[in-house]
Design a binder for these strands. Structure first.
Length: 216
DNA sequence: CTCCCGATAT
DNA sequence: ATATCAGGAG
């Protein structure tokens, strides 16, 4: 496990590598962000953006998603994968927004997580990106990077990873750090082919040597 | 734990 | 051919 000084070095380094890390899911309001993030489960954001480009032109409000047959919505998001679950969730989510939230996306984590297809990770993204409420969403990249670097333990659950990051990172830097960890994981410390050879953090990474061998 | 699932990289 | 992708629900 990294000590506080090492954590500080990690934050500084990923800040230099990805100073302008940001949410890469295209959206123009909280409602579109909820849809985009719920679609992004087990799918690249590039593909989500390809689908939402057309989707957001066709469906503007919660009412629009309910107005069409479920099969039509399934077809509009088919290329994403997991499309039956996602279509059903989006439809129900829109119904709930209209019934319980005046058609608007709630800001509270507890309320967000009541929506179908919205778990803690998605709720945290919406809170942080759409509403500017401090939160750290732990996705596959944040989890992998945190564990490889030794920010947390290998056996930690995603919730434990989130708690560790909240404890180790100053609250005013949660949003920024969250996106930098994602960029670091997505473009540098990748799942299949991590760039260990050019990694400025290799000396404090427990997994680095293992990956160096595999790539040689 | 399993299932959902197409697109892409390796 | 297999692993992975801004996960969530049962």
């Amino acid at each position: 496990m990294l000590n506080n000084k090492q954590i500080e070095r990690v934050l500084e380094t990923i800040g230099e590598m990805f100073p302008d890390a940001h949410c890469e899911l295209n959206h123009s309001n909280p409602f579109e962000l909820v849809i985009a993030v719920s679609l992004s489960a087990q799918c690249t954001d590039a593909l989500v953006n390809k689908v939402t480009k057309k989707l957001f032109e066709k469906y503007k409000k919660p009412e629009d998603y309910i107005a069409v047959p479920l099969e039509e919505l399934q077809n509009d998001i088919r290329s994403i994968g997991l499309y039956r679950n996602k279509a059903k969730n989006i439809r129900k989510l829109c119904e709930m927004l209209l019934e319980n939230y005046d058609g608007k996306v709630p800001r509270e984590r507890e309320e967000l997580m009541k929506l179908p297809g919205v778990g803690r990770k998605t709720a945290n993204v919406v809170m942080s990106v759409a509403f500017g409420i401090p939160a750290i969403a732990v996705d596959t990249h944040v989890e992998r990077v945190s564990k490889r670097l030794g920010i947390c333990r290998w056996k930690d659950s995603v919730l434990e990873v989130e708690k560790t990051l909240m404890k180790k990172v100053p609250e005013e830097k949660w949003g920024q750090t969250h996106h930098r960890l994602i960029f670091f994981g997505r473009y540098h410390c990748k799942a299949q082919k991590p760039q260990c050879e050019i990694c400025p953090l290799l000396d404090l990474c427990r997994e680095g040597k293992k990956w160096m061998k595999r790539s040689s």
